[in-house]
């Protein structure tokens, strides 16, 4: 069990390069502007809605950059080979990598939302309320969705070398949303299309957030879909990790 903390600490330090710190500060700063503007214009009046609006910008860039080449880059550079030669299993490695990216994403989320909340609460003219229980639930679902995206990105990274894995996942997500939009607008009378559109991309946690924010019934089905996707893709990632050719050499 001592392997995990040692490996996590080393990978976490390796992850946070100066470039990554500068990028994160820039993303938080730029990401805060639209959120603050939305609160000041009265479009966002609660903490839960602030979390959603801040996340739409923060998650896009943090996920895209943080999980790029999460496994593939280590295979190409030979780093993975040095780790696996002794005392580390492939499962330990891939779980540690997922946790490092997840923890780093959470840090950026938390810092961004905390700064935004402090800035907004210090302005007495604004009507901004803190709905703690709903905010906590939304934040939890955001974390689950972030974890799912990181796992998907890791799975793709196990299959292809290089750093284009997160772009691939984003492409998949965008295509899924486009087809979803098309089905809802033009082909809503096709029953099979309406059923299938929900399975194009594992969006259970996002859908659950929408249900909660719209004061609809508690989203059991969406949560179940999200949890099922998380489990299946995590298992697929472990399976794919065990088939990664670690030492890409000259022959």
């Amino acid at each position: 069990m001592r392997t995990f903390p040692i490996l996590f600490t080393a990978e976490f330090k390796r992850f946070w390069t100066i470039g990554m710190i500068v990028f994160s500060i820039a993303i938080i700063a730029v990401g805060l502007i639209p959120s603050v503007v939305m609160v000041q214009s009265g479009m966002v009046t609660t903490l839960s809605k602030l979390i959603v609006s801040a996340d739409s910008f923060l998650s896009f860039f943090t996920f895209l950059i943080f999980s790029a080449g999460i496994v593939g880059a280590d295979v190409t550079s030979g780093w993975l080979r040095t780790l696996l030669i002794r005392s580390i299993t492939r499962e330990q490695y891939v779980i540690t990598k997922i946790l490092v990216v997840f923890a780093s994403t959470l840090i950026v989320y938390a810092v961004g939302i905390l700064i935004a909340a402090i800035v907004l609460m210090s302005d007495p003219k604004l009507t901004f309320t803190i709905d703690l229980s709903l905010s906590a639930m939304i934040m939890l679902l955001k974390c689950c969705q972030a974890l799912l995206l990181i796992i998907l990105s890791t799975l793709v990274s196990c299959l292809v070398q290089g750093s284009f894995n997160s772009f691939f996942v984003y492409g998949w997500m965008v295509v899924g949303q486009l087809i979803n939009f098309l089905v809802m607008r033009k082909y809503w009378d096709l029953k099979w299309a309406v059923v299938l559109k929900d399975y194009l991309f594992p969006n259970g946690f996002e859908d659950a957030q929408q249900s909660l924010l719209s004061d609809m019934a508690f989203p059991y089905a969406e949560l179940l879909w999200g949890c099922a996707a998380l489990t299946i893709f995590f298992a697929a990632t472990l399976f794919a990790m065990n088939r990664v050719v670690v030492d890409v050499g000259s022959e």
Binding site: S77, G78, W79, R86, G249, S250
Partner: peptide, 14 residues
């Protein structure tokens, strides 16, 4: 076991 590969690894920030 120990292993020295014929290809060299690279690492940033280490």
């Amino acid at each position: 076991i120990g292993y020295q590969a014929d290809t060299q690894f690279r690492a940033k920030n280490v």
